[in-house]
Nucleic acid binder design. Structure first.
Length: 817
DNA sequence: CAGCCTCGAGTTCC
DNA sequence: CTCGAGGCTG
């Protein structure tokens, strides 16, 4: 380094900033040069010295820490700002098999499904392909006229992230397809992975230079692909195997699969310049597939890259199409996974977390142990019964062995991701170990925690009194799929909640005004602290956390007594956000404008954000489509209330009748009791019943979801919280369906029986696109019933009500397709 | 009323 | 990713 280098403590802030920038550049360049050609431009000693100096300056001037500081660059940087890409054809996941028997079942299902073909044609033969399942990251590569134009991650399967620049650095990915015969547009899909050799090279390098902590090849490959600077990606060697495809179209946009079988397709990929896996084989029986599984398993360690199983696919593409899909997975393919890696460790503690719905979830705190290449120190214990050694039906699991603190337990990563406790070693159980007593009081707010009949989870009854539930609700509200406010993440929300600046979603939208007026506290710190200190145990940690937060905020209480902390919180309430440590004027301003951006919000997002039990993204969207405008939803919920109560009363009466009947040894007269409850109660107005029936008539919404919804909007506290929130917002009505001039626009349609030309969800989205409403059950509101073969009760009801009944073919004629 | 499928909720590590 | 619960079909 230069001779003019001064001691770190003598540097001015400006000088430090300048030097940091210079060193950052030197080090980054050296990193890239090293990775790209294995020929460092500076000596190792010089590199080490530069790195040391960099870290020293950074430590002395933490305020200068850059987001891409070399000291914080570890593994996969949480990348934001990759553009979203919608896949032409969704990228699906695969069903799993672990046992040989499940593989035989898979083959047997195929044989059964295609039985008619083999009866008709004695030559008919089913064959499958088997290939290793690479443990990497799926990517989809779009080629137009043979030129690589865009590459994306899998994402949620429908929308991924544009990582074209990074994928272009991978040698195995042709920028221009070779050979000929490729469709005008094709999405080639496969797995990006890192070889063991490359992973080792990176690890050795980082060990020498005190750099990043690379955990395993998969994570490293993921981190490399998510680099914003693709030079870094280029400096790490990644590989790609092609094995699947999405869109394949000719120049006129017509579907054009360039082959007839999976096997030929992969051969084509090879001829176009892709790498394909050499261990792929064809087989005609379960035995053939399993033989290949064993062969691949035996070679696993020597392949030079990670695999986590073997994938089997039906070979013929036309048959794949005929066999179809279940949910998001093809029926015609299955992943046979290698047994999960297991590890033994000690269970040091069981903590209880409280979720947004009040669910108490036990989490195992473990002595850290490596499982499948990752150090695991927490694992889920599911619920009360799981700890006790029972499953949801009350049958024993783990031979009925319960789990106790201090036990030696076996952990594995389910799906190679989520750590779970699988087993207990009774021989190592300490004599002092006692059965775990699951709390019956909420550990956060001391409210009673109850288990409803038939429910596997115990829930805190504190509602919004419970700080854990309040915070979790707020976290859910600001989460990505919900309101998604830039600069207001889970951490900030927790902070604002603890500081009494926010207690419910509405408070987010009054923050700006309160910040300028100086009246920031929405709760009384004394009251908050009162219950924190009310109890001997549990409170200490929470107070500690609060103390720590105040320190971070730059307001240090004069002592640690609750009164002093409350005083500090109050003082904090007089500071504008921009004055808090970690918040400058810019970031505060940015937050306020991000909040403003969300004052206009789509109906479905708002509804989802409320976090009503059983109301997730899909149900919210369905409700938004049904009601269109927010006021129509609230009006319907209000109207439905009496009928909802009546429904509950009827359910209760039926349950009572069941019990009585069981005691008396006779058959329960359910219909009579149900009818009696409705008839005997003229107090329920007809319009209330109509609103209720309309609600639970929506496809996918039944009585339980209905009760949760109506109750949320009726309960005075919850409803006023919702109304307070909505008063700050402008709710965008759900967009009216695109085509208004179709024959079915505005009609309510129900599909029943088995549909042959389309799946149920296709039928639903098609009808919706044409402006129709899709309901799940037939009522007087129904205009058309589309009945396939095997239609039963709905058909009968439609006939009784005089609803138009048409066939699937009629439907296509009606909509002109 | 049983069995299938979809959706919601909770979880870990980076 | 997995489990359980809720909804729907047959």
């Amino acid at each position: 380094m230069s001779a003019s280098e001064s001691k770190v403590e003598d540097l001015t802030e400006d000088a430090a900033r300048g030097e940091l920038e210079r060193l950052h550049e030197v080090l980054s360049k050296a990193d890239i040069a090293y990775h790209q050609n294995d020929a460092p431009e500076i000596t190792d000693a010089a590199y080490d010295a530069a790195k040391k100096r960099y870290l020293e300056i950074e430590a002395a001037f933490p305020q200068l820490g850059q987001p891409d500081s070399l000291s914080t660059k570890v593994g996969a940087a949480p990348a934001e700002g990759f553009a979203k890409v919608q896949h032409g054809v969704p990228m699906l996941s695969l069903g799993n098999a672990f046992e040989d028997e499940e593989v035989s079942d898979f083959v047997a299902r195929a044989k059964k499904f295609f039985m008619p073909d083999s009866l008709r044609d004695p030559e008919f033969m089913l064959d499958f392909v088997a290939e290793p399942k690479i443990d990497g990251l799926s990517a989809s590569l779009r080629y137009e006229d043979g030129v690589f134009v865009r590459g994306a991650t899998r994402g949620d399967g429908v929308v991924g992230e544009d990582i074209t620049a990074n994928l272009k650095t991978i040698d195995d990915i042709p920028k221009q397809l070779e050979g000929s015969g490729w469709p005008a547009v094709i999405e080639v899909r496969g797995e990006v992975y890192m070889s063991h050799a490359e992973f080792q090279r990176l690890k050795d390098h980082s060990a020498r230079f005190g750099g990043q902590d690379f955990v395993n090849p998969r994570n490293t490959a993921a981190g490399s692909l998510r680099q914003k600077n693709s030079e870094i990606t280029a400096s790490r060697k990644l590989n790609f195997f092609a094995y699947a495809w999405g869109v394949a179209e000719d120049a006129d946009g017509n579907p054009m699969p360039p082959a007839e079988t999976q096997w030929e397709m992969v051969e084509k990929f090879k001829s176009w310049g892709f790498k394909t896996n050499p261990l792929m084989i064809r087989a005609e029986s379960a035995k053939g597939l399993l033989d290949q599984y064993r062969k691949i398993e035996s070679q696993r360690a020597s392949l030079g890259y990670d695999i986590d199983g073997v994938v089997y696919k039906l070979n013929r593409l036309d048959l794949q199409q005929r066999w179809g899909f279940v949910a998001r997975a093809p029926r015609w393919a299955i992943a046979h996974k290698f047994p999960a890696e297991l590890a033994w460790t000690r269970l040091e503690a069981i903590d209880i977390q409280v979720g947004r719905t009040g669910a108490l979830s036990p989490v195992a705190r473990l002595m850290p142990v490596t499982v499948g290449g990752v150090v695991v120190s927490n694992a889920t214990l599911h619920n009360e019964d799981y700890i006790a050694g029972r499953d949801s039906r009350g049958d024993t699991i783990r031979d009925g062995k319960d789990i106790r603190i201090g036990d030696w337990v076996q952990v594995y990563r389910a799906g190679d991701v989520i750590p779970k406790v699988a087993d207990v070693d009774l021989s190592k159980r300490p004599d002092t170990a006692v059965p775990y007593a699951f709390p019956t009081l909420c550990p956060e707010c001391r409210s009673e925690a109850v288990r409803e009949e038939g429910d596997s989870v115990r829930r805190c009854t504190g509602g919004l009194i419970c700080p854990a539930q309040a915070v979790e609700k707020l976290r859910h509200f600001v989460s990505r799929a919900a309101v998604d406010i830039d600069g207001l993440g889970a951490k900030q929300v927790e902070f604002f909640y603890a500081m009494c600046w926010m207690a419910e979603p509405a408070d987010i939208f009054t923050l700006t005004d309160r910040d300028s007026s100086g009246e920031r506290l929405v709760r009384d710190p004394e009251a908050v602290l009162q219950y924190l200190t009310d109890d001997e145990d549990g409170a200490a940690t929470t107070l500690d956390e609060l103390y720590e937060m105040l320190e971070t905020a730059g307001v240090v209480p004069e002592g640690r007594a609750p009164a002093q902390i409350a005083e500090a919180i109050r003082k904090l309430g007089q500071l504008p956000l921009a004055k808090l440590k970690g918040w400058g004027g810019t970031s505060a301003g940015r937050l306020f404008s991000a909040i403003d951006e969300r004052r206009t919000i789509a109906f479905r997002r708002l509804l989802f954000a409320l976090g009503i039990r059983h109301v997730g993204e899909v149900v919210s969207a369905d409700l938004a489509k049904h009601y269109g405008e927010w006021v129509r939803l609230t009006a319907a919920m209000d109207a439905a209330y009496p009928a909802m109560e009546r429904h509950l009363a009827a359910e209760a009466a039926i349950a009572a009748e069941r019990r009585e009947a069981a005691d008396a040894g006779r058959r329960a007269q359910i219909t009579r009791v149900r009818d009696a409850t409705w008839v005997a109660e003229p107090a329920v107005p007809q319009e209330s019943r109509a609103a209720w029936d309309d609600l639970i008539g929506i496809d996918g919404i039944g009585a339980i979801v209905g009760v949760a919804l109506v109750a949320a909007f009726a309960q005075s506290a919850e409803r006023s919280s919702i109304d307070r929130l909505v008063s700050h917002l402008s709710v965008t009505p759900e967009a009216a369906p695109v085509a208004q001039d179709s024959a079915v626009a505005g009609k309510t349609v129900v599909f029943t029986g088995s549909l042959e030309r389309m799946t149920r969800s296709e039928a639903k989205s098609m009808a919706e696109q044409l402006g129709a409403k899709v309901a799940g059950s037939v009522s007087s509101q129904t205009d058309i019933l589309v009945a396939g073969p095997g239609a039963g009760s709905k058909l009968k009801k439609a006939e009784e009500l005089g609803v138009d009944v048409i066939s699937e073919d009629d439907w296509f004629t009606l909509v002109g397709r």
